[in-house]
Amino acid sequence: MDMMFLLLLFCHVSSAEKHSLKYFVAGSSGVSDFPEFMGAAVFDGFLVGYCDSNTRKVETKQDWVEKLLENDTQQLQYYNHECFEYPPKVFKDRIHIFKQHFNQSGGVHVLQRMSGCEWDEETGEFNGFCQYGYDGEDFMAFDPKTSTWIALKPKAVTIKEKWNADKARAKHCEIYLTQLCPEWLKKSLDYGRMTLQRTELPSVSLLQKTPSSPVSCHATGFYPDRATMFWRKDGEELHEDVDHGEILPNNDGSFQRSVDLKLSSDTPEDWRRYDCVFHLSGVKDDIITKLDKAKIRTNWGKIIIRIEKDGSSNITIPITAAVVVFAVVLIAVIGFTVYKNNKAN
């Protein structure tokens, strides 16, 4: 799944009024143990399909996508064509051409393409897009209104002229972005509406690492990601001594968020004046959690593993847990020593 992360770096969840259907494609050269070609289809920020040159098959990631493709053979044929026929060979050839054009020999090189369309449900406006990147830099973009390619880097000008000379290819891109993609986006919305436009309320907990740590109001399992969360004191929203965490995705497609409150200057008797408010867009009633010391789940005396935003883990071992860890390690060392001595004898 690491390779998918490279394709979906700029993927985000769409708002209720705007919907998007995006295709991410990447070809690589000089990368060992990595597919030469891979592609992903993303609807409203959700991965719905994936393929690569190693597996040689289209994998659907949502149940409703399978039903859609069963009833729309044109889309299925398009995905098979994009995964196994035209783009894999073309991307390989283009990387070779680019290397020659830029006097590159050997090394690792990656060619990426993001294409698709967005639809504003309120205004009815569609916007198609197709953009290439080479070795991590924006390279070329297609304008469906003029049916021409635009160089995003000075070094791409020569290649742009060659691509614009291919009128048939430009016309194909224009039809795809202005006709096919909008049609498929609406079909995806019809099939996936029950799943993608659902509303799920979270479970809210009060957490505290140590008695002197901030109290964290943690909400998890909510959907969609359009949610606000804050601390109040005597009914007034707090802005000082409050740390708002970002909304992060869960593995099941739902979201989580935390808001920390520093209470160093307050006595435990004053805690009842605080509460945590969670509001989910489209839901009338808020979830209000009173600050109650008896309901705080503390991690003191336990091993705490916190996943940071960059994907790294920050492990904190309090003194009580550290003693246990040390004892386990000591027992393992003693056991290994006895084993070696017995074997030697």
Results as ranks from 00 to 15, higher is better:
residue 243 D to M: 14
residue 102 F to T: 00
residue 293 K to C: 06
residue 85 E to Y: 09
residue 319 I to Q: 09
residue 263 L to V: 03
residue 69 L to F: 03
residue 91 F to G: 03
residue 279 H to C: 15
residue 243 D to K: 14
residue 247 I to A: 06
residue 279 H to D: 12
residue 163 W to L: 15
residue 202 P to A: 05
residue 194 M to S: 09
residue 121 E to I: 04
residue 281 S to H: 14
residue 133 G to D: 02
residue 203 S to C: 07
residue 217 C to A: 14
residue 275 D to Q: 08
residue 120 D to T: 01
residue 135 D to T: 04
residue 104 Q to D: 05
residue 69 L to T: 03
residue 37 F to G: 04
residue 265 S to L: 08
residue 345 N to T: 08
residue 113 R to P: 00
residue 116 G to E: 01
residue 71 N to D: 12
residue 80 N to M: 12
residue 164 N to T: 07
residue 335 G to L: 10
residue 264 S to M: 08
residue 213 S to Y: 05
residue 204 V to R: 06
residue 205 S to D: 06
residue 148 T to N: 14
residue 282 G to L: 11
residue 128 G to I: 08
residue 288 I to N: 11
residue 104 Q to T: 02
residue 177 L to W: 03
residue 112 Q to L: 11
residue 341 N to I: 14
residue 159 I to Q: 01
residue 223 Y to F: 15
residue 163 W to V: 11
residue 304 I to H: 10
residue 310 D to K: 10
residue 331 I to Y: 10
residue 146 T to E: 01
residue 196 L to S: 00
residue 93 D to M: 14
residue 241 D to C: 10
residue 62 Q to N: 03
residue 103 N to T: 04
residue 116 G to T: 04
residue 331 I to R: 02
residue 112 Q to S: 13
residue 4 M to N: 07
residue 317 I to P: 02
residue 251 N to K: 13
residue 189 L to S: 05
residue 317 I to F: 09
residue 69 L to W: 02
residue 141 A to D: 03
residue 76 L to P: 00
residue 91 F to N: 02
residue 334 I to S: 08
residue 154 P to G: 05
residue 107 G to V: 10
residue 74 Q to G: 01
residue 115 S to D: 05
residue 281 S to Y: 12
residue 243 D to L: 15
residue 55 T to E: 13
residue 266 D to R: 09
residue 15 S to C: 04
